[in-house]
Computed example of a mutant assay.
Amino acid sequence: MKAKVETEQAAALEAQKEQAKKERLLREQKLYNEQDFIRFYYSVYAPLLKLKQAHFQTMAKLTEAQMEEREAALKQLAEETESILQAVEKDLALAGSPLLAQAKSHFEESLRSYLDGIDEALSDQNSNALNPDGLASRLNLFTNNWLKAQGYLYKAIAMWESVYVNKQALPKELPQTVSVALWKDYPFHYRTYVAAEYLAQMKVYDSFNPEDLTARLDLLFRSQEAATLGIKDVPSAIRLLEATDAVRSGDFKQLHPKLYAGLKAPEIPMYRE
């Protein structure tokens, strides 16, 4: 019993030291530098966005396609995924950005799950296995890993914002429900991290990215529509936008001039107009 207590105390002390070191490095602006985001974007995220686009384009075609065409399309998608996985798995120096390292690891796992899901569908004798609904049931692990990885990525960007823009620590944890008023108080990149976390909680894997959802939420909350509809928190707003198919890939860049003049962000293409 005594040994167990001592082990737990030693582990807690080590965790405190690690946290103190992290806080010191953040104050000294030695974590989450611009170059880490640039390396991550071009080595990891850009290929993943290409695959995401290919996935949704393929899903749109499957419903009307013949069986042979479905098989060919999914085999092509698997080949692209395999190629992207090999590229993403390459070593990348991210010691100064642990959240990006975690995002990379989970994205890799999501790609492996994606390949497993497609392989399972192609091996199934049931013709319904190759339609979008049949595939979705086999890609649950993929989407869970992707959404988790996405959360790490956007938290890393929020961390960059807190260190280099606002110079204020991130909140210790998210509240159980983010109200509209609280959402408006958050800086942009932290709002986008919140959006990514809600997408993960709701298991929403769609063609748009979290910054597109943030832009649509900001537009909604600026209008009188949210109040008219009685929307008081972010989850309710997301459910409304998702149910009405109101969020589109590219919404952030389209709304950027109207909503985000002077926005500071890492120098990566996803934030360029």
Rank of each mutant, 00 (worst) to 15 (best):
Q76G: 10
L77W: 07
L77T: 12
A78I: 05
A78K: 11
E79T: 10
E80H: 11
E82Q: 06
E82F: 04
L85A: 06
Q86E: 15
A87M: 06
A87F: 01
V88F: 07
V88Q: 03
K90G: 14
D91Y: 13
D91H: 11
D91G: 13
L92Q: 07
L92T: 04
A93S: 14
L94P: 12
A95K: 12
G96A: 07
P98L: 12
L99M: 13
L99T: 01
L100T: 05
A101H: 13
A101M: 14
S105V: 04
F107S: 07
F107N: 01
E108I: 02
E108K: 01
E109V: 02
S110M: 01
S110V: 04
R112S: 06
S113L: 08
Y114L: 13
I118Y: 01
D119F: 00
A121Q: 12
S123L: 10
D124Y: 07
Q125R: 11
Q125M: 04
N126G: 10
N131G: 07
N131M: 13
D133V: 05
G134R: 05
L135V: 10
L135S: 03
L139Y: 03
N140G: 13
L141A: 11
N144M: 02
L147P: 10
L147I: 05
A149W: 01
Q150E: 15
G151M: 06
Y154S: 00
A156G: 09
I157K: 08
I157A: 06
I157S: 04
A158P: 12
A158W: 10
A158F: 09
M159G: 01
V163L: 12
A169S: 15
A169F: 14
L170A: 02
L170S: 09
P171Q: 02
K172C: 09
K172G: 13
L174C: 01
L174M: 11
L174W: 04
P175G: 06
P175A: 07
Q176C: 00
T177Q: 15
S179R: 06
S179Y: 04
A181Y: 03
A181T: 09
A181L: 05
L182H: 04
L182N: 09
W183P: 03
D185S: 15
D185T: 15
Y186E: 08
Y186S: 09
P187V: 08
F188M: 03
F188C: 03
F188L: 11
Y190W: 11
T192N: 12
A196N: 09
E197P: 00
E197F: 02
Y198E: 08
Y198C: 04
L199R: 04
A200C: 11
A200W: 02
Q201T: 14
Q201E: 13
V204H: 08
Y205T: 00
Y205W: 13
D206K: 13
S207P: 05
E211Y: 09
E211H: 10
